[in-house]
Design a binder for these strands. Structure first.
Lengths: 337, 337
DNA sequence: TTGTAGGCGTTATCAA
DNA sequence: TTGATAACGCCTACAA
């Protein structure tokens, strides 16, 4: 079954050779009269380049693999959406894969994408080793890491300044007189967790606050652990007066716990959450938040990989460290002595 | 630069011909001793089929286009995530496109996907004409429509029983004694809007309630219009005692309006929203919701297109009409006379 | 400027 | 069962 016309058809229609037509399609010079002939034929036959055939020849698929940890949260999808947008405008399509925070799946899907011969890879890594990544870049497939840094990986990264994001958030609490501030972190061994915790520790030091290990809780960045850990914090003998939750899902979980227990915010507890502006508005009282620049992350990653695909290896490996914003709303109160 | 081994390399290593090896790869019969030889060589050389070359030959890309209206809401991403999951398991990858509720972009991206030679198309349509779709299916590319029906389009559809979803939601309000019930709809000309409105009208008829046009508001399924329309409803001389908001974004907008104006839910106003379970839990009081079976939608669409891709045209065109669930929580109160 | 011809990695046909 | 060989649609020297 005929699914579209080929260069051959154009050749027949115009009486020119395939080579001439191919040359024109790829920006070469042909006689004006032939150019007109070709262009008309292309219109009439509705000719479209067969990217598959071209890919076979050029060893390019014009496809970028995008691998993320989770397709069902705003952070990822917003990034994906922006990446996709920019790449599409530049003629690239994207294959989006999701490894569901599962290290095994992560490895598998990297293989899947490579097998699909993607020209480049944008990924939000989990446990992926630097060795694995370096093998890919050595095959001349540019890799851009998002959100999480991998030590020893020779590739570009687009990160967020997690340390200062955390520092600034906790600082806002300290400024308002809070002395016992809980923090709900992600998994201990993940880059963002470490950075966000560092920020917490550093600001505590800077303000000469005592560091109480019992106020630091480690979860798994999932809703349920936000719920559980907030409850744990509330059950401490010496309860915190404020808490900083370091990702979106756990913030959700925390709020659910708070609602269920009818905790008065900010009367009993001040809270600063993470990442979702819309959520901040529908929660009562309005939630204070650390907002990550998701649009910028996506755009930066996309533009970066486009540069690499063009062969521009300037400043390699480049590490962007984008700034977050903090919005203090009514969920944080000032402690009056 | 060599990026992987080819059948040729296997041929050299084993001393067999390319044809034999290809046959084995594609499930043909070869002598046991040769099979072993081939398999070992494949392992040793880490041979992977070049899908591009195969695609050129077979006219298949093992890629499905997924076109949706918006990548930044749970409804779409959840569907995409499930679709992707199932297709991937069956060896297909997906190219996900997003037309941002823009009819022009919609058309463009359909073209883009077709140009990428997708083997099939799963789409959540906007204004796409039946003619356009029929042209695609006539080229033997199966199309599965999601969420919105298109009249005259000869293709499978996976819909939601919007009419009864709406009927049941409003019925819950009527049962609880509400007489004046507002409804915030989407754009007038969209399938889901019409169906959801039909449900509202039908249940009003069934319960012999007077139909008041001023209680019916049309928006654009975006957050802002939810906000605006809820305000409009509240400004009516004869205010509704309950309101049904017919999609997720507008539900968000409505809640923001309610919070800003400090409307007492459900004291002053009962509300039933749409689609996001998590949201229902973090809102205070817990929000009543119509919940769409997003997982089932994605799975059904994916399985359906897989069937079609296998050439099974049984029951074509098939229309699934999945059922919604309704969860009544504290945001709805009983009117006591 | 144009056309001829070879090749990209695979599959498929048809003899052997 | 195996292996030459001709496609698939395109690109690219190189020759005309």
């Amino acid at each position: 079954m005929k699914i579209g016309s080929t260069i051959k058809d154009i050749a027949k229609q115009t009486g020119l050779s395939i080579a001439t037509i191919s040359k024109h399609i790829n920006g070469g010079n042909v006689l004006d009269e032939n150019r007109i002939l070709i262009e008309r034929a292309i219109k009439e036959l509705d000719y479209k380049v067969n990217e598959i055939a071209r890919g076979l020849k050029t060893n390019k698929t014009m496809t970028i693999g995008v691998l993320i940890s989770n397709l069902e949260n705003i952070f990822s999808t917003s990034i994906v959406s922006n990446v996709e947008n920019i790449l599409l405008k530049n003629g690239y399509s994207t294959i989006i894969c999701n490894y569901n925070e599962d290290a095994l799946l992560e490895k598998e899907k990297i293989g899947f994408l490579l097998n699909k011969m993607v020209d480049g890879l944008i990924m939000l890594p989990l446990e992926c080793s630097s060795g694995q990544i370096n093998k890919i870049t050595r095959d001349n497939i540019p890799v851009v890491l998002i959100d999480r840094h991998i030590k020893g990986a020779e590739c570009d990264s687009v990160l967020v300044d997690n340390l200062n994001a955390s520092y600034n958030a906790v600082e806002q609490l300290i400024i308002r007189g809070h002395k016992r501030i809980g923090i709900i972190c992600g998994p201990k061994d993940i880059y963002t967790t470490r950075e966000r915790l560092k920020g917490y520790i550093r600001v505590c030091e800077d303000y000469a606050m005592e560091f109480d290990q019992s106020l630091v809780k480690f979860g798994d960045y999932q809703l349920q652990s936000g719920y559980d850990l907030l409850c744990e914090l509330l059950e401490l003998d010496d309860k915190p007066t404020a808490v900083f939750v370091t990702n979106y899902e756990m913030t959700l979980g925390s709020i659910i716990a708070i609602n269920e227990r009818n905790i008065d915010i900010p009367g009993e507890l001040s809270i600063i959450g993470f990442d979702n502006l819309q959520m901040a508005k529908i929660v009562k009282p309005p939630l204070s938040l650390v907002v990550q620049p998701m649009k910028a992350i996506g755009e930066t990653a996309a533009k970066l990989i486009l540069r690499r695909l063009k062969g521009d290896m300037g400043n390699f490996p480049e590490i962007y460290r984008l700034k977050t914003e903090i919005q203090i709303k009514e969920s944080v109160k000032k402690i009056v002595l």
